[in-house]
Structure formats: C-alpha cells, structure tokens
Design a protein around this nucleic acid. Structure first.
Lengths: 81, 81
DNA sequence: TCGCTTATTACGCTATGGCGTAATTTGTTT
DNA sequence: AAACAAATTACGCCATAGCGTAATAAGCGA
C-alpha cells in the first residue's frame, strides 16, 4: 500500500485502490470531506484540474500523506505497467 | 531531501526547498513548465487552490514524484515542528 | 547604500472546479 | 433477470486559478 505517482491518473488510481482497501465507498469519503461524490469520482478518474485542497482532503480522509521523493535515483515500481 | 506533507503549506515549502537545493529560481521552473512565475510563487506559498496539474508540473520539473504513504503507522518527522 | 536579480502582488480576462440537484449508467447480490 | 447500491455524467451557478502584462517589494552581492 505504497504508491508512487507522477500523473493525475496514477494519483487517482492510488486513491481509489486505497479507498477500496479500506472497504469504503465514494459516499463515505464524501461524508468525511464534505466533497460531492461527483468530485471524488472526478479525482479518482485522473482529472488534473482538481484542486490541491480537494486532493489533500481525500488523502486526509484516507489516512494518507504525501511524500515527495527524488525521481530517477531509485527504481519506480509503476514503470513496469 | 525527502519531505512528507499533509498540507498545501508543507508541499509549498518542500517544493521551495528542493528548488533552492537545485540552485534554481522560480523563473527556471517557469521556463521548464510554461507556468508563470506568479503561479509558482503562489504554490510555494501554500495556496491550496492550486490545480493538481500545476503541482505535478512543478514536481516533474524538479525531478520529484509523489509517494502516497500510510499515515499514523510510523513516525512523522514534521510533527516535531 | 546602490543596483541588479528574484519574488510577490495587482488588474482585467477566460476557462473551469466544485456546488446543488438529479438523471443515468454501471456493478453487485440474490 | 430483478432489485438495490455505487459510480458517472449533466445543467445552471458562483468563485477563482492561471493567463498576459506590469508594478512593487524583497534579497543580495559589489
């Protein structure tokens, strides 16, 4: 449960996977963030126009945090896919 | 050079520190991203309204990537400050 | 302190995020 | 297949990000 991402699509996917791993619905996240289900959906589907505040709210709701890591230095797991 | 962040302020600070560590100016980032210097400034100053696309562009320009990490499990360094 | 570079802020503009609400499509379970 | 739950999409509305341009304010070395 440790995702590295460079694109909005990857972030969306990571958030969706984490949410499902928690056994939660978008509606659950909505309740915890006061964001509309539609907004969560948009984010999970990789909309890069999403505001940082929205991403942060969802991340917080999922009990996650961002870590900014150096790229190129080490192997990136998602480069396989 | 490994920042964990939960807020826009922390992300902005991390990006600013990384940029300075690279010896770059906001203008350098601007050239690499086609974003205005003012936009970079706003992001580094912690504006949560910034679009995800903007954050991703700056991160890419700095050679960084996001890592979504589980919170609460382990110790968070920035909780000290 | 002066002068140059870098960063922040402002004004008018267009594009769009997120809102409320609600319909529709997709998934899941029996 | 039917029925319910979950996710996606749509429409009108308001707020605001990021744009071009430019002025102002910090930083900083000579």
């Amino acid at each position: 449960m440790d995702f590295t991402a460079r694109t909005a699509e990857q972030i969306g996917e990571a958030l969706r996977r984490t949410r499902k791993a928690r056994g939660w619905t978008q509606s659950d996240i909505s309740a915890r963030t006061n964001l509309r289900v539609a907004t969560i959906s948009s984010l999970e589907n990789g909309d890069a126009g999403t505001k940082l505040a929205t991403v942060l709210a969802v991340i917080a709701a999922l009990g996650l945090a961002f870590r900014l890591v150096e790229r190129g230095g080490s192997f990136e797991i998602e480069d396989i896919f």
